[in-house]
């Protein structure tokens, strides 16, 4: 009882943590964009704050527009299946980077007509959070997936030479923007692309993933509006003419990775290479995406970014896990035995992956400790597994009150992430099927 406060999250109202989003309204409607001068005295950079919302929640433009003929949001099984595809995609890319054996798609090089590869792609599963930007002059609203796991921003473009999936907002039309231009093949920016081609002097980009999903089109420049007051002129992005994958009805993707084409890198001089996000706990709430330095809250924990591990991804070093206030007996080598070798595998922080993946030995220790701690609180596993989530509980008849053990992730430098109650369990069918929201990699070397 003495350590109950540090060992458990007590949830007085189960529905507060696992709401039925289909019957809820947006509690904190997205605010107009905020903008302020930086408080940093040593920099002339500014900061801008955007609203981040759950893609399928009532705060999203993608769910509040005309729904009469729209498809219902994906089930949790669909989301988890897509998430597994994304993780395979990331593992594929990491392996390809390590072995330098990544396969590159081919592009036409001299044709005067654009002939883009078009094939059915599997789901990318680009996570669940979106933000709205403006592109072009005048700016047209585009709601895009927030993705720290990739670099190149892209939106679907008219005339969709090959194919576009159905999106909620109007397609971006370059012909209607007075500031749009294609990047030429000779431009240095074209060389920054991981996958590029050339057609009639126009630079082509390709974003292709290990699972087969993709966006291909013209690499272009136009004004990117992050707020009513702040824009980036000459922002380079993909004008997608051939796109497929499970992007929902989003208009594209905002690439926030570490590569040269990412938004943080393109706007480095403006925002100092600093951005932050907060993802809301509930589909009915809003979070933020902030660019530029701001004063961090006093309780901020920091850990080194392991920049030598490879491009694009944000690697950090995980060192251990606490469950219910107790450090799990996981050897440090478990977190550093991946195939990338050298300084260790590291752990990627990815806004586009839904469920945290752990090395098998770490997950086994977490699951064992979590199940034991739940049993000590009177909960028995009584619900079926849901896709990759194998530890599920039935909270029916609990009177809406449950207490779950705390889970804390530990990182190099002493940083820790005391996972919010909403992040420890994933509600597949609340309250009858609520699962531990972690999963294992397939192998120790993944």
């Amino acid at each position: 009882a003495g350590d109950a406060a540090t060992a458990s999250h007590v949830m007085l109202r189960l529905e507060d943590i696992f709401p039925d989003s289909s019957s809820s309204s947006c509690e904190t409607p997205p605010q107009d964009h905020e903008h302020a001068a930086s408080s940093s005295s040593s920099s002339s950079s500014s900061h801008t704050r955007m609203t981040v919302v759950h893609r399928h929640g009532p705060c999203s433009h993608l769910s509040t527009a005309d729904t009469q003929h729209r498809k219902p949001p994906p089930s949790h099984e669909d989301i988890l299946a897509a998430d597994q595809n994304r993780v395979k995609s990331i593992q594929h890319r990491v392996a390809a980077t390590t072995s330098r054996a990544g396969k590159q798609p081919s592009f036409p090089t001299t044709s005067s007509s654009v002939k883009l590869p078009a094939s059915s792609g599997l789901a990318l599963g680009t996570g669940n959070y979106v933000a709205t930007v403006g592109i072009g002059t005048p700016a047209t609203r585009q709601t895009v997936v927030v993705d720290t796991g990739s670099d190149t921003t892209w939106v679907q473009c008219r005339p969709c030479v090959a194919s576009c999936y159905a999106q909620r907002e109007a397609l971006f039309d370059p012909a209607r923007s007075s500031t749009y231009s294609n990047v030429s093949c000779a431009a240095a920016a074209c060389s920054d692309l991981d996958v590029r081609g050339c057609s009639a002097g126009h630079c082509l980009y390709g974003v292709q993933y290990g699972d087969g999903s993709f966006s291909v089109g013209f690499f272009a420049m136009d004004t990117l509006s992050l707020s009513s007051y702040d824009s980036i002129k000459g922002f380079k992005f993909g004008c997608g003419e051939s796109n497929d994958g499970l992007f929902g009805e989003a208009s594209g993707l905002l690439g926030l990775g570490r590569g040269k084409t990412s938004l943080p890198m393109q706007a480095y001089a403006k925002y100092g290479g600093v951005f932050s996000h907060c993802l809301p706990a509930r589909p009915t709430s809003t979070g933020y995406l902030n660019f530029g330095p701001t004063s961090p809250p006093p309780a901020t924990q920091t850990t080194p970014m392991l920049t030598t591990n490879g491009p694009t991804f944000y690697y950090v070093g995980m060192t251990g896990i606490h469950v219910a206030g107790r450090l799990l007996p996981i050897p440090p080598s478990v977190f550093s035995s991946s195939s990338s070798g050298g300084g260790g595998g590291g752990t990627i922080v990815d806004s586009g992956t839904v469920i945290t993946r752990l090395p098998p030995a770490a997950y086994a220790a977490l699951r064992s400790a979590f199940v034991a701690a739940m049993a000590a609180r009177g909960y028995r596993r009584a619900a079926a597994a849901a896709a990759l989530l194998d530890t599920c509980y039935d909270f029916s008849g609990m009177g809406g009150v449950v207490a779950i053990p705390k889970v804390v992730l530990l990182f190099q430098g002493g940083a820790y992430l005391d996972v919010d109650a909403s992040g420890i369990m994933y509600a597949v069918r609340p309250p009858s099927q609520v699962c531990l929201g972690f999963a294992a990699n397939d192998g120790d070397g993944d």
């Binding site: 720290t148 961090p296 901020t300 850990t303 970014m305 945290t356 940083a415 994933y426």
Partner: peptide, 30 residues
């Protein structure tokens, strides 16, 4: 590699500082 996904990041402010090569976590940011 392991991956910290968005379910576990909920409510945290996650700051990425490319210049300082640092990632930060701020509890209760939203």
């Amino acid at each position: 590699v392991g991956i910290v996904g968005n379910t576990q990041l909920k409510t945290f402010g996650v700051v990425y500082d490319l210049g300082k090569s640092m990632v930060g976590f701020s509890p209760g940011a939203c």
